[in-house]
């Protein structure tokens, strides 16, 4: 069974790019354009194996989303990676303290992305 990854980003290009790489590697990809939409998807019963979220988004940003998602019983243990830029050190630390597992640095290369995912996602169930 393929693993599901939820991508939360307000940039359709970023979603398209991540989706292409991930789907080519056998992941199932769900996406949301901001934190509140993602939260609604999670409350709707989706149990992704991994969540990748941008930080700067309209409506509900990434940090607020992480805090809210971690409060959901079904999302206590799901690895969450934030999409950050190299200059976002403060944001990374803050997201870690809110329960993010790690971060990805934009721009992303396919091998880097897959490398990080392999690091936080245990081998296939």
């Amino acid at each position: 069974m393929s693993k599901t990854i939820l991508i939360v980003d307000d940039s359709p290009t970023m979603i398209m790019s991540l989706r292409a790489t991930l789907e080519m590697n056998g992941f199932t990809v769900e996406s949301a354009s901001d934190g509140s939409q993602a939260l609604a998807i999670l409350q709707g019963g989706l149990r992704p194996h991994l969540i990748i979220t941008d930080i700067n988004m309209p409506n509900m940003g990434g940090l607020e989303f992480i805090r809210a998602a971690r409060a959901l019983p079904s999302c206590r243990f799901i690895p969450i990676l934030t999409l950050t830029t190299e200059s976002d050190q403060a944001k990374r630390d803050e997201s870690r303290s809110l329960g993010a597992t790690g971060w990805l640095v934009k721009p992303l290369s396919g091998p880097d992305l897959l490398g990080v995912i392999r690091q936080v996602l245990p081998a296939a169930a």
Binding site: D10, S11, M14, S17, N56, L83, K106
Partner: peptide, 14 residues
Amino acid sequence: LFRAVHSIKGAAGL
């Protein structure tokens, strides 16, 4: 403004 510029940067990096 910040978000727009930030998003452009993120996408351009591809």
